[in-house]
Simulated scan of single mutants.
Amino acid sequence: MSTARVVFGFGADSADPVRLLPSVQSADRLGLDHFSVSDHPYQAKYLDAYAALAFLLGRTEHISGFVNVTNLPTRPPAVLARTITTLSTMTGGRVALGMGAGGIWDRITDLGVDRLSPAAAVEAFEEAIVLIRQLSSPGPAVTFSGKHYRVNAIDPVPIAPLPIWTGSVGPRSLAATGRVADGWIPGHAADWLSERFRQSRPLVDKAAVAAGRSPADIRTIYNLAGNITAEDLPRTRDDSGRWVGGSPEQWVEELTSAVLEHGAGGFTLFTGNFGSLDERSLKVWASQIAPAVRSAVAAAD
């Protein structure tokens, strides 16, 4: 996934196995950049994220996929690195790594995972990203001795540069994103006009600069929920300021502004209720909205 190109994808509903594969194959044919699946291993209604990701990548040709976002405490990073390098090798690099520090700890501990404090969870999160990068890059055997993770003389599997996008929310994880990640997915489907974005993105940028990185190296990829309607809506945002959708023309205007005025790097479309996306909306998103936004952005350069 290019760091210059605005990427467009959609959130595939892994709680709907009947429609999951057809929707991803349709997105592949339509030319979308990526799809994502969620990772809730404590909820039986969802398919396992990485099993589903591998299956879907194996039944498509061009589209990339990622887990939005990986429930790190349930997936040891050295083994996760093997999963990711295998998927990248088998698909020609059609995979990104979405990373999260934990989230719903009451349910995570129900799986037998030891609870970490918020600070410790972020330490583990940053360590895991560093370790996965080492295990997926050229170099000698990796020996890593962190506070939370340790490996001894493990040979890396070099792959094409792996985009790592984080679902960071708190100040510590946002700073970690600035130091070691390539992209940030704002939590709670917050967008570029939200207070969450205004307060959070500067923390990412500050940490990036302190680490000797350019803030431009960390893209913002939005989980964006909304409905694509046939006609213009009187209001495209609700009383709280959250985007609700509109006609294709309204989407194009809003997303073009997000890129040109707020530096958006990409969008992952979800329905308003985060369920399965219907075929019409997927087609309009891929065939009308995405190309029109790209054209408008190119014309403004």
Rank of each mutant, 00 (worst) to 15 (best):
I132F: 12
Q134G: 08
I132V: 15
G139P: 07
A160G: 14
A124W: 14
A120W: 14
G178Q: 01
V122R: 04
H148Q: 02
A141M: 13
A153P: 09
I164N: 06
A176C: 00
P138K: 06
E127Q: 07
S145M: 14
P140Q: 12
D106C: 07
T166G: 06
Q134L: 08
E126Y: 04
A121W: 03
D114K: 09
F125H: 00
Q134I: 06
I129E: 06
I132K: 02
L162Y: 09
V130G: 09
G112D: 03
T177L: 02
V130L: 13
R107I: 07
P161K: 02
G139R: 10
I129G: 00
D106V: 09
A119D: 12
L131R: 04
N152Y: 14
A175Q: 07
D114A: 15
T166R: 04
A124N: 06
S145R: 14
V157L: 06
V122G: 03
G167Q: 01
I164T: 06
H148T: 10
A175R: 05
D110V: 03
R172M: 07
R179V: 01
S137F: 12
E123A: 15
A160P: 07
V142L: 08
P163Q: 08
A153L: 13
I132L: 10
V130E: 12
P163S: 11
A160R: 15
V122A: 10
A128K: 04
I154G: 11
A120D: 13
H148C: 08
S173H: 04
T143A: 04
A160Y: 09
E127P: 07
P156C: 04
V122E: 07
D155W: 13
H148M: 10
A120Q: 11
I132D: 09
I154N: 08
V169W: 12
A176Q: 01
A160E: 14
S145K: 15
S117V: 05
I132E: 11
G178S: 01
P140H: 13
A120M: 14
V113A: 01
L131M: 12
S117N: 05
P138R: 09
L116E: 08
G112V: 00
I108E: 00
A121G: 10
S137R: 05
P140E: 15
W165K: 13
A175E: 05
R115L: 10
A128M: 07
P161C: 02
G170E: 00
P156A: 01
L135T: 09
P138M: 06
G146E: 10
L135W: 03
H148Y: 08
P156Y: 01
V151S: 06
A153T: 09
V122W: 10
G167L: 03
A160L: 13
A141L: 12
L131G: 05
